[in-house]
């Protein structure tokens, strides 16, 4: 009996370890493929140069970094007012029944394949933006709106959980002093839920930075420094996806190096999210 349990335990340990090993192997593989080119052109030459022309041997990804930053910032700007209002309504004003129905539906939005979001952007947003704002359609703005909608479920769902985790005694305490519901939300509930909401936002940023398919379809993918929100841009993820299937040699390495930059960005975001969450618990 005992030995059988030990066996099961050992098996589970092996499986758990292999997950970690696989992750490590992927990281190592990307590093091995991408690091040489970074070392050759220098971190500065790689990250701070805007010249990306693989045929001429120029591998600067600044334009893509800027494109990613713009789209991500835009997505957060689009998403935040919506997801926060939604979370505040569902947590503080709706009945538990409404909340119980709507929250899973919102979370379901996260399950829609990103190609569908990209498609929606093409058929709905392209014409709208072309007709009312100008430009061709594919742009920072289009991608920001669509990505903003894509990260809604992540931020909303985490924000609802953080608001719901605020002890009921704070609400009662505030209302019993003659505060209105809005004052209670603004002055007590939101500050108390701040850390949770922030880590939700950071996870949302992570999703936006990592999104590929939808972005390729609607961002335009030009390697340029954008001058307006209607300009097309290329993101880091799109760069890899678009060029990987024909890249060789240094070019291929440069794409892996782009992957390293993404990998590090996501790791940093996760560390920030965890630190914030932990800080919240300690308090």
């Amino acid at each position: 009996m005992k030995s059988r349990e030990n066996l099961i335990q050992f098996g589970l340990l092996i499986i758990a370890l292999s997950t970690i090993v696989i992750l490590l192997l992927i990281a190592l593989f990307i590093l091995k493929e991408g690091l040489p080119i970074i070392l050759r052109v220098g971190i500065k030459g790689f990250i701070c140069s805007t010249h990306w022309s693989p045929q001429q041997g120029q591998f600067g990804i600044l334009a893509m970094i800027i494109g990613t930053a713009w789209i991500t910032a835009g997505a957060i700007l689009v998403s935040l007012p919506l997801s926060l209002s939604c979370a505040i309504y569902l947590s503080e004003f709706s009945t538990p029944k409404v909340r119980g129905t709507l929250k899973p539906i919102i979370e379901l939005l996260a399950g829609i394949p990103s190609v569908v979001y990209g498609f929606m952007g093409m058929v709905i947003l392209f014409p709208l933006i072309r007709n009312y704002l100008g430009g061709a359609g594919p742009s920072i703005l289009t991608a920001s709106v669509i990505l903003g909608i894509m990260i809604l479920p992540t931020i909303t769902s985490i924000a609802i959980d953080s608001l719901q985790a605020v002890p009921h005694s704070y609400r009662e305490g505030s209302l019993s002093l003659g505060a209105t519901r809005w004052q209670t939300i603004r002055m007590v509930i939101l500050p108390a839920a701040k850390t949770g909401i922030l880590s939700g936002i950071i996870l949302g940023i992570g999703r936006a930075v990592g999104e590929t398919m939808a972005v390729i379809m609607i961002a335009g993918n030009s390697v340029i420094i954008p001058k307006s929100l209607l300009d097309p841009v290329r993101t880091l993820t799109a760069n890899i996806a678009l060029e990987m299937n024909y890249a060789t040699g240094d070019h291929r390495q440069a794409l892996f190096a782009t992957g390293i930059v993404l990998f590090i960005t996501i790791i940093i975001l996760n560390i920030i999210a965890h630190t914030i969450a932990r800080g919240g618990v300690e308090k």
């Binding site: 002890p167 005694s169 704070y170 009662e172 305490g173 505030s174 209302l175 019993s176 002093l177 003659g178 505060a179 209105t180 007590v188 500050p191 108390a192 308090k283």
Partner: peptide, 21 residues
């Protein structure tokens, strides 16, 4: 005016419920 009433008759609860401020 409920808000004024609650101001006039303030409440202290069983467990301290200081806000996280």
């Amino acid at each position: 005016d409920i808000l004024q009433l609650r101001k006039k008759a303030g409440m202290v609860f069983q467990r301290p419920n200081c806000f996280p401020l």
